[in-house]
Amino acid sequence: MTPVLETTGLGVRYGRTWALRDCSLAVPRGRVAALVGPNGAGKTTLMHTAVGLLKPSAGQVTVRGEVAFVAQDKPLYDGFTVAEMLTFGRRMNPRWDEEAARDRLGRLGIPLERRVGRLSGGQQAQVALTLALARRPALLVLDEPLANLDPLARHDVMRAVMAEVAAHELTVLLSSHVVSDLTDTCDWLIVLNGGRAQVSGDIEDLLDGHRVLTGPAGLAEGVAARTRVVAASGSGRQATLLVRDRPVLDPRWSDRRPGLDELVLAYLRSPGSAALPGPARQGVGA
């Protein structure tokens, strides 16, 4: 299936430093892709490039269909009423579902005549999301959509996004640095590290393709020689390895499927240039 979002050799440079470098990835239609990585990894830069706020310095980015964006901090015009924000959306976009937008806000109990600046943080997030969804985009890009929201508002926002994915053929790219926020909602994972894409693929496939091995530290090197180790840690006599594939093991080793946060952390701890035999840079499972 043709991906909705595709980047090839994408690079973005600020002055002399590359915020994003040689980044190639694709998000298939209908997926909810999690974009994770430490601060400064290039998450926001990648998103800004995808929505056209930034021009690539190298390579290219392709979005098939209309893209809607909710920036970090969900910017809105504070002095506008909610109804005026809807007018803004209607006048700025030829494709606009006013009825759905009013319906959504009505169900959320957000009064149309209230000034945006006087809404709660959760309500502002919902208004920003409503503006984006009313455009009926093919791709919805959300930069840290859950940051600064209380647990209830986080749940409400994710519910709204998920319902939209279920109802329309919407593809979502959302960033977060809290991996646990993403476990039940995302089905595609992109790990950015130091401006490069480290992982990109289906989450279930990725989790199936990795194992967490625990066993005697003395045998770790032998195992490492036979498989691709993503990350290794250990305390004293016991070693824990996160590896790709499933090696034939000495019975002294136990192995299990990793959790999403374990997998993400393992990759973030060992960027491609680490001493351990790292993964291929183009990612895994793709």
């Binding site: 209908g30 997926r31 909810v32 749940h155 994710m158 519910r159 998920m162 319902a163 994915v165 279920a166 109802a167 039940d184 909602t185 995302c186 089905d187």
Partner: peptide, 17 residues
Amino acid sequence: PTAREVVESLAINPNTV
């Protein structure tokens, strides 16, 4: 329940349903 109904109550990915 439809995928959309499950998703709206649990905030999970519809593909999971």
